[in-house]
Every structure is written in structure tokens, then in C-alpha cells.
Design a protein around this nucleic acid. Structure first.
Lengths: 135, 135
DNA sequence: CTTGACCCTGTAGTCCCTACAGGCACCATA
DNA sequence: TATGGTGCCTGTAGGGACTACAGGGTCAAG
């Protein structure tokens, strides 16, 4: 299976496949006579796994761990649980943060009554306090 | 006012201040005899504005526009409104996406009953389908 | 006069790709 | 057999928004 087919089968950009190989997330495949990468069918699964995990926001080092772990079927799966749990926590904290941003943006926008820049409430709101989006 | 004071007054990394200057977000300040940057007080406001907007997730090019607009007090503020509105939309869509991720992660984690890697539901869930986090 | 905190420039690294440039390999068609 | 088009190869640079040095200069206090 050539890189283009793997790419299509998994919905992954060809450049990304080569990138994953470069950083060691995908093993180096065999090569054909013409020096083309020649993938075994199970690489489709591995790459789907990677893409799905990336789609869920796991970072590459998490995925590296998950793949490593999955290659030791006899070991306990609590490490996997840990990675997923901590990722969930970070997703949830991001949701909370964004919720606050959203509220602040809504508040800013509600104050805008049109008019001139000089009185723009949005710019005022942005300028007003220091860093803190909270409070 | 030296760069370190500006940095403290705004809670911005010194390197970041120089970076903003390099990309033209902050004007080039005067220099002292010893070639130190010497900031006028209003730069504190400008930098606070920038950091606040960044904290709200506006990207640099948005901020550049907002700053440009704020320098034309006679113009209509609807462009500002537009930038903020479209940013709000993107925040809201990010929130929706993350909400879906969260649900999928929770679902995955609920299925984990501990045990061995070979039966790990989380790995299964990650491997199972193709790309789609949805459905 | 030396120490230490601060400042300077310039460059490289981070993360996760994406996008070339310049060149082979392969297959179908004329 | 020539040719064209597509796909593949390597290697490198870019992007966004910083961050982190290395290798120096400046300044105030002791």
C-alpha cells in the first residue's frame, strides 16, 4: 500500500504521514524497488488511532504513550485511564475558560450601541482593566 | 520607563514585549544613552489592551485592526463590533466542539473497568472508528 | 573595582503540521 | 518509443505566538 492510499484510507494528508514517520509516531515502512513507501495493512489502524486521538485533542506525546501502552497487552490499563482522565480535565478546564470569555465578549457586545470609535464600549472594555479576563 | 518596569506593570514577559515591537504591535520606543528602551506611560495602556485582548483569544491580526481603528476616533465603530462578533462566534463554536470531545472522553472513561491493556475500552474506543469524533 | 541585576541583539526552539522546490518512478496513451 | 501526467521522493522553510538561550553591554550599590 502506497502512501497515497494510506492517506486516503485514513483521511490524513500525505505530508502529515511522512511527518509522523519522521517523529517516530509511525514506523518506517518497507520500500518498493522505486523507493516508494510500502505500508502493511495494520498501519491503517495505527494511523486511524493516531488521527482519532488527535481529533480528540490528545497531544503527540500522549499518543506516543498510548501506543506504547497498547503494545504491552499484559500490563494494567490504569495508565491509559490516567492519560485520558487528565486530558478530560484539561478539556473541561478549557471549556470553563472559554465560557468565561464568551460571557465577557457577550457583555462587551451588549454595550455597543453603534456610533463613533471615540465612544466605543468594546474598545473601552478591552482597554479598561489589566490582564484579568476574570472578576 | 524601562522594559522591565513596563513588563511588570502589564504582566507581560520582557521577551514578549520585544517580540511585539519586532512585529510592529508596539511602536519603537526612544532609547536612553545606554541604548535601553525608554517607554512613555501610554505604552502601558496600549500593552494592557493588547494583553487583555490576547487573553480573550483575539489573534494578533485582530488586535492590529482594533488598535488601528482606535486611532481613528471619528470613524464608525461597527468594524470593531464585527471583529468582536466574529470572535464570539468562533469562541462559541470552539465551546461546542470541546463539549462534544468532553462527552466522548467521558463515555470512554465510563467504560473502563480497570484490567489489562488487552481489553482496554479506552484504547478500543480510540481505535474503533475512523476520524470522526462525532456520532 | 567588583558584583549582580538588568538590558541589548540575534538566533533557534516549541507544537503540529503545511507547503514548497527540485527531482525520480510509474503508467497510459499516441 | 516518446510523452505526459500523476504520484512519489528528500530536504527545507513557514506559520502563530511566543519562549529561551548565547554572548555581550550598562548601571547602581557596596
Amino acid at each position: 500500500m502506497k502512501i497515497g492510499e494510506l492517506s486516503k484510507a485514513t483521511g490524513t494528508n500525505v505530508e502529515t504521514v511522512r511527518y509522523y514517520e519522521r517523529i517516530g509516531l509511525l514506523p518506517k515502512p518497507n520500500r518498493t524497488g522505486g523507493n516508494y513507501r510500502d505500508y502493511a495493512p495494520q498501519e491503517v489502524d495505527r494511523l486511524r488511532f493516531i488521527r482519532h486521538a488527535r481529533g480528540l485533542g490528545f497531544d503527540i506525546s500522549d499518543i506516543r504513550s498510548l501506543l506504547d501502552l497498547s503494545e504491552h497487552p499484559e500490563r494494567d490499563c490504569c495508565e491509559v485511564d490516567q492519560i485520558a482522565t487528565s486530558h478530560l480535565a484539561s478539556v473541561e478546564s478549557k471549556i470553563r475558560q472559554l465560557g468565561q470569555l464568551q460571557q465577557e465578549l457577550v457583555r462587551m457586545l451588549r454595550q455597543c450601541r453603534g456610533g463613533q470609535m471615540a465612544d466605543c464600549r468594546i474598545l473601552l472594555a478591552l482597554a479598561d482593566r489589566g490582564l484579568a479576563p476574570h472578576e
